[in-house]
Simulated assay, not measured.
Amino acid sequence: MSLINLKPKVTSIIKDSSESTVSRLTKICEVLKDSVAYYDWVGFYFANHEARTLHLQAYAGEATDHTVIPFGKGICGQVAVSNENFVVPDVKAQDNYIACSISVKAEIVVPLFKDGKNIGQIDIDSSTKDPFTKEDEVFLEWMNAEVASIL
């Protein structure tokens, strides 16, 4: 499915105020994972700035041991520090990579801002090497801006 075609689904989930925020985030993860062939694991991490850690709040895909990630560690931890998107075409080429699964070949992490502050991120793993494009980044930036409206 085209990422553009996912916008109405994501918007509908976000606007469903009868569901809790975590439930809506989980549904977004599930829709992305189920709709985009190369999105094999999708999760939202949120920052605890005092402890300098990220905490997994919602995800779709295999369970992970990486529910708390220190700032600076792995791709997610680096995004918590840099406040910039990080696209990894080949995780084997990254020195500071935390392996979540042997099948992961690529990763994209896009920070989530609320009132100008990096409060979290969406993290997507793919078992396909180098699948992410600028279209993925633009879509995920849009989606994170929409998600910020319910946080």
Rank of each mutant, 00 (worst) to 15 (best):
T11R: 14
T11G: 09
S12T: 15
S12V: 12
I13K: 07
K15I: 01
S17N: 13
E19I: 06
S20E: 03
S20N: 03
T21M: 05
S23Y: 03
S23F: 06
S23M: 02
R24F: 06
L25Y: 07
T26G: 06
K27M: 08
I28F: 05
L32M: 12
K33I: 01
S35I: 04
D40M: 03
W41C: 08
G43Y: 10
F44S: 03
Y45M: 02
F46I: 15
A47G: 04
H49I: 05
A51W: 07
R52C: 00
T53K: 15
L54M: 15
L54T: 09
A60E: 03
G61C: 08
A63P: 14
H66E: 11
T67M: 09
P70L: 00
F71A: 07
F71T: 09
G72W: 03
G72I: 05
G72E: 07
K73P: 00
G74T: 14
G74W: 09
G74K: 10
C76T: 09
G77T: 13
G77R: 08
Q78N: 14
Q78M: 11
Q78Y: 10
Q78S: 15
V79N: 01
V79M: 06
V81K: 08
N83I: 04
E84Y: 04
E84L: 13
N85S: 15
N85A: 13
N85V: 15
N85E: 12
V87A: 04
V88Q: 03
P89E: 00
P89W: 02
D90E: 09
D90H: 14
K92T: 15
Q94R: 14
D95V: 13
D95I: 05
N96Q: 04
I98K: 07
I98R: 08
A99D: 08
S101A: 11
S103Q: 10
S103V: 12
S103D: 13
K105I: 01
E107H: 03
I108R: 06
I108Y: 10
V110K: 00
P111D: 07
